[in-house]
Simulated assay, not measured.
Amino acid sequence: VMPYPTRIFRNLSGEEIEAYSNRFSSHLVDTVQRYQPQLIHSHHLWILTSLVKRLFPHIAVVASCHGSDLRQYDQCPHLRRQVGSGCQLLDAILTLSPEQKSQIVKQYRIPPDQIYVTGGGYDEAIFYGDSSPVNSKQTVILYAGKLSRAKGVPWLLKALIGLSQHTFHLHLVGGGSGKEYDACLREAEHLKNRVTVHGIISQQRLANLMRQSDVFVLPSLHEGLPLVVLEALACDCQVIATDLPGTRDIQQRLSCDNLVLVDKPLIRDIDATELVDERRFIEDLKAAITSWISDQSRASKNMINLEYYSWSKVFQRIEKIWFESTAR
C-alpha cells in the first residue's frame, strides 16, 4: 500500500508495459545525451534497469538489488525474459546479503562473479549510542516503519495488547495510507495510554527516540537488509526482528546478543498479507518481548562494533566496484 494511486506489475497489459518502457526510454536517452555519463547506477533488478543496459550497452551499468525485485521476478513469469535480457548484461550487481546473491544466481542465471555483497549502510553521524541509564520504571518499546500488514504491525500490536501484566510504553513511528493504515491505528487505540503514535518524523528525532528506548521491534514479513535494525543497534537498543535473510546476516556477522530473531510466519496470500497461523506469530512476538522484559541482566546497554555496516564503509565498497566497472 503506497500513499498514491498504484498498479501491480503482474496486472499490467502488454500495451501498458510497453508504454511504461517507452516513456522512460525517451527521458533516459535525453538525459544520457545531455550528461554523457561514464557509469549509471540503477536500483532494482527489474524492467527499468534492464531497459537501461539494453539502451546503453557501451556504458557501464551497476545495479543494486533490494529484495522486492526478486519477489516481482517470482510473481511475474511473463516479464522474466524482458527483465533478464538486460540484467544478465549488467557490469556489476550489488546485493545486501549472501543469501540474496544466491537467489539472483538461481533466478536470473547470472554468474556469481558479476555479483558483489556490499551490504547496507546506516548514517553513523546520526545513529549512535550514549551512556544514559535505562528507565527502570517501564520498558520503552519502539517500532519505526510503514504502518502496514507487510511490516507486521497488526500482529505486533496484538502481541502487546496481550502483555497487560507488564509495564511498558510503545512508540509507534511511521506513516501509511488506506485501510491497512487505518486498521493499525484502530488496533493501537486498544493500548490506550501505553502507546504514542508519532507519525512520520525526522531521522534525528528517530535517533533520539532510539536512544531513549529499551527494545526496538521489527516484525516485518519482507525485507532486504533493514537499515532500521542497524540504526537501532547503533543506538544501543535490544532488537527483536523477524528471521529473514537480511536480519540473519546481521546476526551472524555481528555475533551479538542484542539481536533476537522470531520465526517468520507462513504467508497464505502474499498480496493480502494473510498468514497461515497468525496466532503463533503473535505468541512468538509476545514471548520474545516478555523474555527481554523479564531478563533484568539485559537491562544494561551493550556496545557492539557496527563499522562494517556504516555508510562510509559501504560506500567504500560500492565506489571500488564503480571504478572497476568503468575500467573494463
Rank of each mutant, 00 (worst) to 15 (best):
I250S: 06
A234E: 06
D243L: 15
N208W: 12
A287F: 02
L170P: 03
Q212F: 08
L51C: 07
I126A: 02
T6N: 04
P133K: 00
Q72P: 05
L94V: 14
K151A: 02
G121A: 07
Q212L: 05
F24I: 09
V62M: 01
P111Y: 13
Q204N: 13
H222T: 10
C235K: 04
C76L: 10
L227F: 03
F323W: 10
I47P: 05
E307I: 09
T31S: 14
A241W: 07
S310F: 00
T49Q: 01
P154W: 05
L90R: 02
Q107I: 13
P112Y: 04
S291N: 15
N208T: 12
R80K: 15
N305T: 08
L227R: 00
V134D: 08
R34K: 15
R34N: 15
D74P: 00
Y73G: 01
T118L: 14
E274I: 13
R317G: 02
K313D: 08
G129A: 13
V215K: 14
S202P: 14
Q252L: 12
D123Y: 14
D269K: 02
L261D: 04
Q251C: 10
G162M: 14
Y116T: 11
R298F: 04
S68C: 10
H43N: 10
H171V: 02
R194D: 05
P154M: 04
L45N: 04
D123P: 11
R109G: 09
R34W: 09
I126S: 03
E18R: 15
S325F: 05
M210T: 00
R80P: 12
L206A: 01
G86D: 11
Y73D: 00
K179I: 03
G84V: 00
G176I: 07
P133E: 01
W46I: 03
I304C: 07
V262H: 03
K137Q: 15
I40E: 05
D295C: 07
R7H: 11
T242H: 08
I200Y: 06
K313T: 06
Y309R: 00
R298M: 07
K313S: 13
Q203T: 10
Y4P: 03
G120C: 12
Q251F: 06
Y309W: 11
A63N: 14
A207Y: 08
V52H: 00
V260H: 08
K101S: 06
I161D: 09
W292N: 05
D214C: 08
M303Q: 14
G84Q: 00
R298T: 11
Q36G: 00
K264L: 15
L185K: 11
I304F: 11
D113S: 09
L156W: 06
F127T: 09
W292G: 06
I8C: 12
Y116P: 04
H66C: 02
I304G: 06
L96D: 05
G67T: 10
H171G: 07
C65H: 10
